[in-house]
């Protein structure tokens, strides 16, 4: 049960949040220009890292805002939280 520091609301229990998969996968601006393989890469391929991972989270039962989280999946340490559109912290 993480304690997540929503950038808009502050510390809240994990129950209020929904995980939204890998972060920083931008939707292609011109999907029709892409080959099947390139589109499939965007659509299906996701990392599943043991270690530091960049993730999207949503404060679903709170402010409904999406934000990014850097989490070490091996010990669930939350290393950083930052808003959508902000640059990920340097490693």
């Amino acid at each position: 049960m993480f304690l997540i520091n929503c950038p808009y609301c502050g510390e809240r229990d994990q129950q209020e949040f929904k995980a939204g998969g890998e972060a920083h996968i931008e939707r292609p601006k011109q999907p029709t220009e892409l080959s099947d393989d390139e589109w499939a890469e965007y659509l299906f391929m996701r990392k599943n890292i043991k270690g530091v991972q960049f993730e999207r989270w949503n404060h679903a039962h709170g402010c409904r805002k999406w934000f990014n989280m850097v989490r070490d999946t091996s010990n669930d340490e939350i290393k950083a939280i930052y808003k959508m559109g902000e640059k990920p912290p340097a490693q």
């Binding site: 929904k18 939204g20 939707r27 999207r56 949503n58 409904r64 805002k65 999406w66 959508m84 559109g85």
Partner: peptide
Amino acid sequence: LGKLEDYLQTEWP
């Protein structure tokens, strides 16, 4: 609603 918010906030801000 969740899906629409997701697109609005993350892909089309």
